[in-house]
């Protein structure tokens, strides 16, 4: 799947989760060990075309997430690479114990696909928000967590995760019509953060939808003569410790995530920063430890202070202090 102007616009319109289904459909031919299951969310995962083209590679699990993870693990034991999808709280939370035993303890090669993680379902509310998903998955030894910044990165991540032998959680965020971060082809490597913009004063580490907001915030801060580096931490676990340590020349480090500040990307960065004497101060932005009131996606970003304007303002206040 070529990363070009037309494709990135299409993927942007589709949003991350439908791009996921499209990517599997495009790569299925060359992925001979691929198997896909969904918890009654085939269409929501953008898998319609994939299922039409490759019915032998798909199984509906019904609304049985725990069973789905167990089945996927059994298939993985005999050579399949299984992607299983549901809304992020259901795939990570409902099936948590199965994930712990099968993907964690037995390290089976199953890729969990969490749809509409963060606040992506907007007005649908907290039953469907994926706020603690990163904390849950991060607590499982050996689990990889990937949160793509846009459609192009979803395509890259799907391919890379298929090639990777081991359990992983693919965290898909945002709405349809998500902003574009990556306009041209680029090198993507699991576990290796990408510096999208250089800067002297502040380094922002962000993932998913927050990468675009961070880039926008960096532009706003430039106008205030604050120079900001933005690092795309698409792989939240294992965290790129080198990328974190490479930022210690900054006056301030900032971690931004569309998810709970408890146990997420910010916590992952903090676990490195806290051990290093030379590390500068770290500021963590995300959804505070609460169940936020349900609202439309844009309203939520504003209310939670996770849009570029709020991010820039908070950083400015902190730097000028």
């Amino acid at each position: 799947m070529e990363i070009n102007r037309v494709n990135v616009r299409t993927w942007s319109m589709l949003g991350e989760r439908r791009t996921f289904g499209l990517a599997l459909d495009s790569y299925a031919e060359e992925m001979d060990r691929l198997f896909v299951m969904s918890g009654d969310l085939l269409s929501s995962s953008g898998l319609d075309r994939f299922v039409r083209n490759y019915p032998e590679k798909f199984l509906s699990a019904g609304i049985e997430e725990q069973n789905m993870v167990g089945i996927a693990s059994g298939m993985a034991a005999d050579g399949y690479k299984v992607f299983v999808s549901s809304f992020s709280p259901f795939i990570t939370g409902r099936a948590y114990d199965q994930i712990r035993m099968h993907l964690g303890y037995m390290h089976h090669d199953v890729k969990l696909v969490g749809l509409a993680a963060g606040i992506g379902v907007g007005i649908q509310g907290n039953s469907h928000y994926g706020l603690d998903d990163v904390a849950l998955m991060r607590a499982i030894p050996g689990m990889m967590i990937v949160s793509p910044s846009d459609g192009a990165e979803v395509v890259k991540a799907v391919k890379a995760l298929y090639d990777y032998d081991g359990p992983a959680y693919l965290r898909l965020v945002g709405e349809q019509g998500c902003p574009i971060v990556n306009k041209e082809d680029y090198g993507f490597q699991l576990g290796k953060a990408i510096t999208l913009r250089d800067g002297e004063d502040v380094t922002i580490f962000s993932a998913g939808t927050m990468v675009y907001q961070s880039l926008q915030a960096a532009k706003l801060l430039e106008e205030a003569n604050i120079s900001v580096k933005v690092v795309n931490m698409h792989t939240i676990k294992p965290i790129d410790v080198e990328a974190i340590r490479a930022s210690y020349g900054s006056k301030l480090l900032v971690a931004i995530e569309e998810g709970s500040v408890v146990g997420g990307l910010g916590s992952a960065v903090a676990e490195t920063v806290a051990m290093d004497e030379e590390a500068p101060r770290l500021m963590i932005m995300g959804v505070p430890d609460c169940f936020p009131k349900a609202a439309s996606y844009k309203h939520m970003l504003d209310a939670l202070g996770l849009d570029a304007a709020h991010i820039a303002e908070k950083i400015k206040q902190s730097v000028l202090k």
Partner: peptide, 20 residues
């Protein structure tokens, strides 16, 4: 064949093995 002990997880695993 399988790490178990957390009850209620063996059947799903067996189903996966049987499908494979």
């Amino acid at each position: 064949e399988c790490s178990t002990g957390s009850l209620g997880q063996g059947l799903a695993y067996g189903i996966g093995l049987a499908i494979a």
